[in-house]
Design a protein around this nucleic acid. Structure first.
Lengths: 207, 207
DNA sequence: GTCTATAAATAGATAGAC
DNA sequence: GTCTATCTATTTATAGAC
């Protein structure tokens, strides 16, 4: 592996990640990737065997990086759930091409088993937007261990889906328009507010 | 226009709607649509001029039907916001292929202007998941006219994005697995709960 | 309006020279 | 490892017979 190899492979990964997110798997051709990355067409198949394999490598890499990033934040010190949710939003937003790709893939594949299998191997978590378990733990820490199972699921799903959805919307549309109350600062305020409101409800319910 | 024409055109619309939602625009070929719809390949271009035009017609039709469906429900009688949100969920779920298509399109296109322009003509609302204004009106009715602009935006976005996201997830994944607390009845309970919690927060804030 | 046949472009993948 | 050239398959779209 010479220096050039790493550069070529990395360039392909970097460019393909963005292009797949923008135009989807079928909407992106290997030729276009090679053109934008300024590498030879044949090098894509040389380094990644197939287009599908390139796509899988990008997704798994992105997923693992996300999960690790959130894990690092959690392990860093004792954060509140509010801080964690804002961090997850910022983290997802920074890597929105990955999130968008994963979400698109999830929306397209009829067989999620395939996704789950592909995601395993390097991580214990099932494939899908990463960090779910960490958020659940943070909720338990704030509400108390006697939280009802049903409540935990509701809170986790409500908070998590909100952040995922808002990130996707932010990445895809809002950035291009000037919606009122849609700056990143406003969105973070909204996430904090929802987190507080949900926590309050969960505490009420588990008393 | 003979009877056959209507049947062919309708069959193409019906089949293409589902296939575009499953595999995306680029992932679906006109040939496959014709094969599944059991019509001749050339008839697609005959009736719709181009593949892109067929896609646009499906999206605009789906959007208008959704907006109208929600409008009909609102005009029917005085529903609570909770009832409205559950209705929107059920309505979206019934038409999840359309919702998924619109969302995928939104995620793919760099230029949302195009979408907005295409959506206009038959409807006053801007293109995008429909019904936003009706929900905003319902929030105002419950919280009171003195609701702060910022609060209205937060509540609308929180509730709406939750329902949209949950619908997409339900349509794409949950239906195939057996997640705990993920039946449609559980989801509806979750939507009602979030609606109550958000309303409570908004009422508190506008006092 | 529906069909067959085909044009014209593009896709993924590979062989073989360097 | 990188390149050119090319194979094979598939795509959208259309022309013309019926």
């Amino acid at each position: 592996m010479t220096k050039e190899v790493v550069d070529t492979k990395e360039k392909i990964l970097e460019v393909a990640r963005v292009m797949f997110a923008e135009k989807g798997f079928e909407g992106t051709s290997v030729r276009d990737i090679a053109k934008v990355a300024e590498v030879n067409v044949a090098s894509v198949n040389y380094h990644f065997t197939s287009k599908e394999n390139l796509f899988n490598e990008i997704l798994i890499k992105g997923h693992n990086e996300c999960a690790q990033g959130i894990r690092d934040f959690v392990n860093e010190k004792d954060h509140s759930l509010e801080e964690l949710m804002v961090y997850v939003f910022r983290y997802f937003l920074e890597r929105s091409p990955d999130l968008v790709s994963i979400f698109k893939m999830m929306m397209s594949f009829k067989d999620p088993e395939k996704l789950i299998k592909k995601g395993k191997g390097t991580e214990d978590e099932a494939f899908g937007p990463p960090g779910g378990k960490l958020i659940a733990d943070a909720i338990i820490k704030e509400v108390g261990a006697n939280i009802k199972d049903e409540d935990l699921h509701w809170g986790l799903k409500t908070l998590f889906s909100h952040v995922v959805h808002i990130t996707i919307i932010s990445a895809c549309c809002i950035a291009k328009e000037d919606h009122p109350y849609s700056t990143h600062a406003d969105i973070e305020k909204g996430i904090r507010r929802l987190t507080r409101v949900v926590l309050q409800e969960l505490k009420m319910s588990s008393k």
